[in-house]
């Protein structure tokens, strides 16, 4: 597998260095802790919003640091939770008088590290809380996780809590918003191919030429079932049906609809999926109020996509509508 890579051990630091050099006015890179933070942060007048995770999911989360989104992101190596001391130091560095919210996708390794960092920082006097995101409907438990996984739907939690924080909400209020959005967000993904971590150099798992993995996790963990490749509209049905049934979403609901690419699928294919998903929702009386098509949370170079639905109300829609400035949205 051909990759743009020098030393696989330096893959993440070299990516972060490039990101910082490309955004000198808005981002700051702290190499000691793999930390990307807003150049003007931490803002003493708002709750700091921080997300950590393994790398390999870009633009999540280092490329969604900016005004109206994350104040900082502290990634680990590819698909590995950040080390404890990185999270601990990041939390202290981002501490504002209004507090810090650590957002974490629900994976066992991340959960342990972030809970520990929260407890340690709190013992040192930092006002810090942790919120776990678990939007994946496909499986309860999987290779990396206890309970449901957090996947692309975390974008909506980040956007909403960040908007609330920018408006001046206190830490408890920000958490209320985050829990609410998480509770009405559902995602399911599908892989057409495996992904290749730079340090491994070969695909992470085997998927036959004519096979797809339904309910795949963002590290390529197994999902609900393996199936033969089928027409795109049928794949949309395979993803949308479990999502709609799960919450459940019903006639009269207004939703945000995201079709997220997993890294190796052209945007053209994502819009093809989006069109079918939109029409199928309309047939069930579900109105799409906000649309998101592109790469939000990827799995390196995996060909595949996920569909996310968020049930909107006036509060959530208003928060999602607030302005934000992040590297991947700059023209």
């Amino acid at each position: 597998m051909k990759k743009f890579v020098n030393n696989p051990q330096q893959f993440v630091p070299e990516m972060l260095e490039g990101l910082a050099l490309a955004n000198p006015d808005t981002l700051k890179y702290v190499p000691e802790y793999n930390l990307i933070m807003r150049a003007d942060g931490p803002d003493q007048n708002k709750v700091s919003i921080v997300q950590g995770s393994g790398s390999g999911h870009e633009p999540a989360h280092v490329m969604i640091v900016g005004k109206g989104m994350l104040d900082a992101a502290c990634p680990g190596d590819v698909f590995a939770a950040p080390p404890f001391d990185y999270v601990h130091e990041t939390t202290k560095l981002m501490a504002s008088p209004k507090g810090v919210l650590l957002l974490v996708n629900n994976y066992t390794g991340d959960k342990m590290v972030f809970e520990m960092a929260q407890e340690m920082s709190a013992a040192e006097g930092v006002n810090v809380k942790t919120l776990f995101i678990n939007d994946d409907v496909s499986v309860e438990d999987s290779t990396y996780t206890i309970g449901r996984r957090g996947v692309a739907g975390n974008f909506f939690v980040i956007k909403a809590v960040a908007a609330a924080a920018e408006r001046g909400a206190d830490l408890d209020e920000v958490i209320r918003v985050g829990e609410k959005v998480n509770s009405v967000t559902r995602t399911m993904g599908v892989a057409l191919t495996a992904c290749t971590p730079p340090a491994k150099g070969s695909p992470l798992f085997e998927l036959g030429e004519d096979e797809i993995e339904l309910g795949v996790g963002i590290h390529g963990e197994p999902g609900r079932r393996r199936a033969k490749i089928m027409p795109a509209n049928d794949i949309v049905e395979e993803l949308l049906t479990p999502i709609v049934k799960d919450l459940p979403f019903s006639d009269g609901d207004r939703v945000a609809l995201m079709v997220n690419g997993l890294g190796g699928t052209p945007i053209s294919e994502l819009y093809l999926l989006y069109g079918q998903a939109h029409k199928r929702l309309a047939e069930q009386g579900i109105t799409v109020g906000r649309s998101y098509v592109g790469e939000y949370c990827t799995s390196l170079d995996m060909a595949g996509a996920s569909i996310t639905l968020v049930r909107l109300d006036d509060e959530i829609e208003s928060l999602l509508n607030d302005p934000a400035e992040i590297p991947i949205r700059v023209f």
């Binding site: 404890f84 342990m112 590290v113 809970e115 520990m116 407890e119 340690m120 013992a123």
Partner: peptide, 8 residues
């Protein structure tokens, strides 16, 4: 994290 929690 387990041994660290014990000491903390």
């Amino acid at each position: 994290p387990l041994w660290g929690t014990a000491f903390l």
